[in-house]
Amino acid sequence: GKELVLALYDYQEKSPREVTMKKGDILTLLNSTNKDWWKVEVNDRQGFVPAAYVKKL
Rank of each mutant, 00 (worst) to 15 (best):
T33P: 04
V49L: 03
V40C: 06
K2R: 14
N31H: 07
K23N: 04
K22D: 04
N31M: 09
E3A: 12
T33D: 15
V5E: 01
V42W: 08
K56D: 04
W37T: 02
D44P: 07
V54Q: 00
A7P: 00
K56Y: 10
L4R: 10
D44Q: 12
P16N: 10
V19G: 02
E13N: 07
K14S: 10
E18K: 04
G47D: 00
S32P: 06
N31V: 08
L8A: 04
V40M: 02
G47V: 05
V5S: 03
T20D: 04
S15Q: 08
D36G: 10
D44E: 13
A52I: 11
I26V: 11
M21Q: 01
S15V: 04
L8M: 09
W37F: 06
N43W: 11
V5A: 12
G24W: 06
L27G: 12
L6F: 09
L6K: 08
L4F: 15
G24M: 03
K14F: 06
N31E: 14
A52H: 12
P50D: 01
A52Y: 09
L6Y: 11
Y53A: 11
R45W: 04
W38Y: 08
A51G: 04
K55Q: 14
T28R: 12
L29F: 03
F48G: 01
A51I: 03
Y11W: 12
R45V: 08
E13Y: 05
A51P: 05
I26K: 05
K14I: 07
R17Y: 13
D44K: 11
V19R: 02
V42T: 15
D36T: 15
D25I: 04
S32A: 12
Y9R: 15
W38A: 03
T33H: 12
E13C: 13
T33Q: 12
I26C: 06
N34V: 05
E3K: 09
K23C: 08
V40T: 00
L6C: 09
E13I: 06
P16I: 10
T20W: 05
K2T: 12
P16V: 09
Y9A: 12
K23F: 05
I26Y: 06
D36V: 15
L57I: 14
T33C: 13
T20H: 04
L29Y: 02
T33V: 10
N43G: 15
I26H: 05
E13A: 15
Q46S: 12
K14V: 08
W37C: 06
D25V: 05
K39D: 04
L4V: 09
V19C: 09
Q46G: 06
V54Y: 02
L27S: 02
L8Y: 04
V54E: 01
L8T: 04
A7D: 00
S15F: 06
Y9M: 12
L8I: 10
P50I: 02
E3Q: 14
K35E: 11
W38C: 04
Q12T: 14
A52Q: 11
D10G: 06
E13R: 13
T28G: 08
K2L: 13
V42Y: 12
G47K: 02
R45N: 05
E3G: 10
K23Y: 05
N31S: 13
A51R: 13
L30K: 05
K22Q: 10
L8Q: 04
W38E: 01
V40G: 00
G1W: 13
Q12G: 08
F48Y: 15
Q12K: 14
T28I: 15
L27Y: 11
A51D: 02
S32Y: 08
G47L: 05
Y11S: 00
L6H: 04
L57G: 04
L4S: 07
F48R: 03
L4K: 12
L27A: 08
K35Q: 11
E41R: 10
K39W: 15
L29H: 01
A7M: 02
Y9V: 11
L57M: 10
P50G: 02
W38L: 04
Q12Y: 14
Q46V: 15
K2D: 08
W38D: 00
A7K: 01
G24V: 00
N31G: 07
V49E: 01
G24A: 03
T33Y: 10
V40P: 00
D10S: 09
K55G: 08
E18G: 13
N43H: 14
N34K: 07
W37L: 04
Q46N: 09
L30G: 01
L57Q: 04
S32R: 08
R17I: 12
K2Q: 11
K56E: 06
K35F: 09
D25H: 06
V5Q: 00
G47S: 02
R17H: 13
G47T: 02
V54L: 15
I26F: 06
N43F: 14
L4E: 07
A7W: 02
N43A: 12
N43R: 14
D25A: 08
D10E: 06
R45T: 07
N31K: 07
E41H: 07
K23P: 03
F48Q: 03
K39R: 11
Q12R: 12
R45L: 07
Q46M: 10
G1N: 13
G47C: 03
Y53I: 07
G47Y: 05
N43P: 12
G1E: 12
Y11M: 01
K39H: 10
K23D: 02
T28M: 12
S32I: 07
Q46Y: 07
M21P: 00
R17P: 06
E3L: 12
S32K: 07
V42F: 15
Y53F: 13
W37D: 01
S15G: 13
F48T: 03
P50T: 02
P16M: 09
S15D: 11
D25Q: 15
V42E: 04
L8R: 05
P16Y: 09
L4Q: 10
E3F: 11
D25N: 07
N31A: 10
K55S: 10
R17A: 12
D36M: 15
T28L: 14
E41F: 07
V54D: 00
T33I: 09
F48N: 04
K23E: 07
P50H: 02
W38H: 02
D44M: 11
K23R: 11
E41S: 10
N43D: 14
D25S: 08
V5F: 07
L29N: 00
L30A: 03
L57A: 04
K55L: 13
Y53K: 07
V40R: 00
K23H: 06
K56W: 08
K39S: 08
K14A: 12
G1M: 13
E3Y: 11
P16A: 13
L57N: 03
G24H: 05
T33F: 10
L30C: 07
V5L: 12
K55C: 15
K35M: 11
K14L: 09
V42H: 15
K56F: 11
V40S: 00
L8K: 05
D10H: 06
I26L: 09
E13D: 05
G24I: 01
Y53R: 06
L29D: 00
V49A: 03
L27V: 07
E13L: 08
W38P: 01
Y9W: 11
E3H: 12
T28C: 09
K22I: 08
K55H: 11
R17D: 12
V42D: 12
F48S: 03
S15W: 06
W37R: 03
Y53W: 07
Q12N: 14
V19H: 03
A52V: 10
I26E: 03
L29T: 01
T20C: 06
R17S: 13
G1Q: 13
A7G: 03
D36W: 15
K55V: 15
L27P: 01
K35T: 11
G24C: 08
L6A: 06
Y11Q: 00
E3S: 12
A7H: 01
E41C: 13
T20A: 07
V19E: 00
R45F: 05
K39T: 08
N43K: 14
D44H: 12
A51H: 03
G24L: 03
L6N: 02
L4G: 03
T28F: 12
Y11A: 01
K56C: 10
F48W: 15
R45P: 01
L6I: 15
S32H: 09
S32T: 09
K35A: 13
K14M: 11
A51K: 07
T28V: 15
A51W: 02
V19A: 05
Q46A: 11
W37M: 06
E41G: 08
N34P: 05
I26M: 07
